[in-house]
Nucleic acid binder design. Sequence first.
RNA 1: GCCGCGGUAGCUCAGCCGGUAGAGCACCGCAUUCGUAAUGCGGGGGUCGUAGGUUCGAAUCCUAUCCGCGGCACCA
Length: 643
Amino acid sequence: MVALTFPDGARRDYQDGISGFDIAKGISPSLAKRTVAMAIDGAVRDLSEAIVADGKIEFLSREDPRALELIRHDCAHVLAEAVQALWPGTQVTIGPVIENGFYYDFFRNEPFTPDDLPVIEKKMREIIARDKPFTREVWSRDEAKRVFRDKGELFKVELVDAIPADQSINIYKQGDWFDLCRGPHMTSTGKVGNAFRLMKVAGAYWRGDSNREMLSRIYGTAFAKQEDLDQYLKNLEEAEKRDHRKLGREMDLFHFQEEAPGSVFWHAKGWTLFQLLEQYIRRRQVEAGYAEVNSPQLMDSSLWVTTGHMQAYRDMMFLTEHRADDERVYAIKPMNCPGHVQIFKNGLKSYRELPLKIAEFGKVHRFEPSGALHGLMRVRAFTQDDAHVFITEAQIAEEALKINDLILSIYEDFGFSNVRIKFSDRPDKRIGDDAVWDKAEAALMAALEKSKRPWTLNKGEGAFYGPKLEYVLRDAIGRDWQCGTVQVDLNLPGRLGAFYIDEHSNKVVPVMLHRAMFGSLERFIGVMIEHYAGHLPLWLSPVQAVVATITSDADDFAREAMLAAGRTGLRVEADLRNEKINYKVREHSLAKVPAMLVLGRKEATERTVSIRRLGKEGQQVMPLDAALKMLAEEAIPPDMRRA
RNA sequence: GCCGCGGUAGCUCAGCCGGUAGAGCACCGCAUUCGUAAUGCGGGGGUCGUAGGUUCGAAUCCUAUCCGCGGCACCA
């Protein structure tokens, strides 16, 4: 007998090996009908599974949040069956559930095109309508391999081989079609319902390995209800409107063109924003004891051989051509650290000078793969708010923690409070002894623990010279972007011959912390545009207000208002065109100008302005001086507000 | 870099079973002085990404190449 506890607390005994379905049926036929799976002690299982131990049991309906994963997973199976029905000979590989849906990877000579999707969807609806039960069978390893090999499913054979020896080989059947699968599944294909949609086709490497076959992937999503699917599609549209590439054009911030792939042409307004960020960081780091420096853009490539960059990243570095009168090969810097080490090395340093913190808004160039380029988020030329902190070994944890706190405080000023931290330890491709890595990782971990922030391990993802913390922000479209980083480096200073004199007059190699807060200013601007949907806070808006007239009778007062605004330090533009106020309001709203100061005949006479804020209806009338004072107040950067 | 898709006026896009380019918005001109998201009328503007090829004839078909988009891989 097995004793099962139900969600309402009731406890009943059942015959050993009874299926979930039989239990549900015993309670009521309608329960059995609407149940698609069960959860035993919280773990979702097939409803047909035999129960052999005591535990808590729950029946899941289609509407249960935990069933969503099943709907999507089953949908992936239906997709695979549909594809094989339409194009026999196509091999199936894997089809997992992902964050907002699922995908299935196929191998065939002719990849899918977007036009295939509606055809596949139609076939899927047929399969769902047939409503065949999902049944599970356990096969022997040899039998599974033989069957798949006979069917020509060579990728499945490889998967069977990859399943650990202590795990059984599960086969799920839906009518005549079957797939190797861990499960669980719902009771039948009909439970998938019709609220699904195939989204896009894409290429993907078999097992994520760029040396292996290129598979053809179909992405889809599915929901329990049509309304949920509609809402999801609507959200995608909304996210598209936030795309920084689109907003960047509409707000006249920047552009790209063919001649400079992956490099930004910053327009006046975008460059204003860029400089505001730079000034902000400059204030924050001066406060934190950093000195700003500037190192050469172009240095002899031998320097990069010494650091190991040429060995690790040669094809991603921009190198100068050989020329007759100078045979040296120069590299455009892909990082600022070697330059900063040269500055450290220039002149004898004492332990009394540590920690020595030098910062640079360093513009670095990296030949990113063409497929990786993505607006401001991934470029080939970008500006790091980079710094290097030279310290003794004993200072690692303390200084790393200071950087951690500074980074998090900065993100808060920009409205990013939900930041995830990743700890990346030693990669396979690295320099330096394991003993040195042990020390570096332990010290960084000590800082991380002191910060008392949740973090995740990013195994083997450290830099080739040291472990790192990475700070990840999530954008409006749900993509994660790594921005800040702290890296402990016990290797490069020694390689580059840096040392300081300790209290016993000995030469000692310093430890170097690398840190960046925005990471790339370009990327951070992209993330911010999407985060705010273009509605930048006043202190960051390139144009903070537009003075717009209703009639030319107000022109003189408008010019006066401009002068007064200029004296407050606000960035204000005038719009005295002979256009209707509706037209002006619309245009400046689309350009995301945060405030409009509207002047008509009435305002000109009374020396007032009518303020309209972006995204808000209605307006507020107040004396010009009061209005400017209010805006100037609001435009104070958050860090200066604290001071 | 790999797979797929795309590149036509400043922007969004139509034309693409070959016959030599079109719309809306934007821009310019004129009129309008009009109270909070598009005033009316008129006008100018494109070697159809680039280079080859097929053809009497190419934006339309073919090849190469560049750039972009969606993924994958990569990201010091």
